[in-house]
Nucleic acid binder design. Structure first.
Lengths: 187, 187
DNA sequence: ATAAACATACCGCGTGGTCGGTTTGTTTGC
DNA sequence: GCAAACAAACCGACCACGCGGTATGTTTAT
């Protein structure tokens, strides 16, 4: 019994809240368990209100994913601009970004979403498109094979961290992080 | 309109068929799209018959996963026994096994299942348990950090291969494979 | 006045799961 | 050897529920 239509209209804030809550719920219970009702409730809006912003469930999910990709882009750009060395700068930023969400654990919106993303063809395309674009853009500095291997290993670690109940031990995580970072500075 | 109850009873064969068809459907359309009805149909049994073998959908899925883990175990054991070098023998078998299903692409039962496995807490536990047990068992030969990194990279490659629409190019796959194998023979 | 931003009520449908019955196998008693 | 008795395998009809989505009303902003 929400009364959002009696209060001041704030479409942007509502939309933002919907995206955030959808990401949260997906991260907690998996994308499969995501419900329009639960998201609407969490954002203090009715299901009808949600469907006004996003015409379908699929549209909502894609919007969440694109939003997440956007913040990832910003973060990586920020890190890259702070990196004095050119060679492997994208790979280092990639590693840093993923270890950051890895340390955050399940609280990170990325947790379940990017995993469940594989089940959805559209999201898969979005992700691989993002990755392809990014690799093209940094072809000059990040196309070496050892760098690719470091990125793959990062993905694997991130994946393993999700499967483990309480995440990988912090010490081991640090070791892996350092080793990966070293891989990016070789010729 | 199945008439399986009129024909000769063959519970083992039916159970096997149910597991296979469930794995197939999950691999094709994702675990989320898995339906008791579709699995039962594919196995030429009614939904009631299916629920006689597996008391719930969850039970079916877990059984499929355990079955898959069993075949993976066999395969890895077989490969390890054919490996003359002790150091890193499990890691090599692990790499080989995963590259095999990677090359198979979506046709492999592992495709969608192990991805969707992350969304389900029970399956996650099964997988991490399997991995933990295996690592303990081969602690003497496969506990080096470079080996762990190689395994993580394998996971990452396998994951990337799923996200790409038509899989990674075969040539690049071979390069990565060789590089990983070389990582396992260092001191 | 008009459109956007919501709420409310409702529907169709597919789903997982239950239940009682029917057929086939297997064991037991004589 | 042969029924009777019991258990396992399987069917077919059914149900309750939750889901995504629609249609329409009401409030607010411009």
């Amino acid at each position: 019994m929400s009364k959002a239509h009696r209060r001041e209209k704030q479409p942007d804030a509502v939309r933002r809240s919907l995206l955030d809550q959808a990401a949260r719920h997906a991260a907690e219970d998996g994308l499969g368990a995501l419900t329009l009702q639960s998201v609407a409730d969490a954002a203090h809006v009715t299901k009808g209100g949600l469907l006004h912003h996003f015409p379908s469930k699929q549209a909502l999910i894609e919007a969440v994913f694109e939003d997440l990709l956007g913040t990832l882009d910003e973060e990586i750009d920020r890190m890259m601009s702070a990196d004095p060395v050119a060679h492997g700068s994208f790979t280092r930023a990639y590693i840093d970004a993923f270890f950051q969400v890895t340390r955050d654990g399940e609280s990170s919106p990325w947790a379940a979403i990017s995993v469940s993303c594989m089940t959805d063809a559209k999201l898969r395309a979005l992700w691989s498109g993002w990755m392809r674009g990014r690799l093209e853009r940094h072809a000059g500095t990040d196309s070496d094979q050892p760098l690719a291997l470091a990125r793959y290993a990062t993905d694997g670690i991130w994946l393993a961290n999700l499967t483990e109940i309480s995440g990988l031990p912090a010490g081991e995580l640090d070791n892996l992080y350092n080793q990966l970072k070293m891989m990016t500075v070789s010729p």
